[in-house]
Design a protein around this nucleic acid. Structure first.
Lengths: 182, 182
DNA sequence: ACCTGAACACCGTTCAAGT
DNA sequence: ACCTGAACACCGTTCAAGT
């Protein structure tokens, strides 16, 4: 890739990160291009779809997911509490940007989505947690990582759409945890 | 209201019902006006916002909600099954149109929404069910009708966004029911 | 009092012309 | 090979002119 192309690409991603943080994942791409100081065509050349751009922005998010996963898995207390912790952590991770819960949860079931690789990281992390919880015998049989993703994703999507802070869904996550535990 | 205005209003609602059924609640309003054979301005005169139009279309939906409520409340079997039945019924009722789960569930927490009156009918119906279940002692303390609406609404929203038929979320609704029951 | 439809704004997307 | 920005399409929304 030519040096100026590389540089423009980076400018666009940086600008998108900023705009998405302020306005959410459905913000105007025109604004992203303007702030990056590039023409609209340049943005589309690098990122044919919005999802491709979101995927690039989510690159650093992967680190946060892995960090949070290690932290939760290192928890030494009762496994039942570990479940609660993961649900809250999961909800927070997908709610960092407005529009995140809906986009991430939808892509979770659509393997051809450009952001599928990022979703896979989160789903794999969830698998590690559910595997552990199944070993410990705290989860009901048949509860899969996908189930967790869709349940927590659903509740977080509703809160996000209603402009409610993610902290307010804690009671609902408790209900989910109770439903998944034996 | 003048006779021609009345007639145009009815044409718009009828057209909207058709278009929303085919394309969901976020379909183009321009198409609605075209099919109704009226100018765009006429549509906006009668319905200043999309939500106002959705509210008008949902008028007949109220009957379905009340009908379904009576049917579920008439159920004579174990109360725990009544819970399952209501969750499934609820999910079906809000999933009749694409975009319904998100719109109805969001409005459930926004009392100033034009479709709030319609949401109230569904919330009240849910209250009747939860009251009954609390009396029977099958629901955990603190579970409110609002909780039910947000939990089922969330799961249904995810399925709707992923273009999945509502029937596929039944296992997730079982998890919710287990979490809400004692 | 109500309706029409052109006009405007906004945004996503493409592409001919330029470097 | 890459970039620019005008141009097009689409849609929501308004409003002057008409009945």
């Amino acid at each position: 890739m030519r040096a100026d192309a590389r540089r423009n690409r980076d400018l666009i991603v940086e600008s998108a990160r900023e705009v998405f943080r302020e306005q959410g994942y459905n913000a105007s791409l025109d604004l992203v291009a303007k702030r990056a100081g590039v023409g609209a065509g340049t943005l589309y050349r690098h990122f044919p779809s919005r999802e491709d751009l979101v995927n690039a922005v989510m690159q650093v998010w992967v680190d946060r997911v892995e960090e949070a996963t290690e932290k939760v898995l290192a928890f030494e207390g009762p496994p039942r509490e570990l479940l609660d912790q993961w649900l809250m952590t999961y909800a927070e991770l997908i709610s960092l940007h407005k529009g995140g819960p809906a986009k991430i949860t939808a892509a979770m079931v659509q393997p051809d989505s450009p952001i599928a690789p990022k979703c896979k990281v989160l789903r794999d992390a969830t698998s590690r947690v559910t595997d552990r919880l199944h070993e410990e015998g705290v989860l009901r049989e048949g509860i899969t990582a996908e189930d967790v993703c869709r349940l927590v994703g659903g509740v977080a999507t509703v809160a996000d759409g209603a402009e409610q802070p993610v902290s307010e869904i804690e009671p609902l996550l408790k209900v989910l945890a109770a439903g998944m535990a034996r």
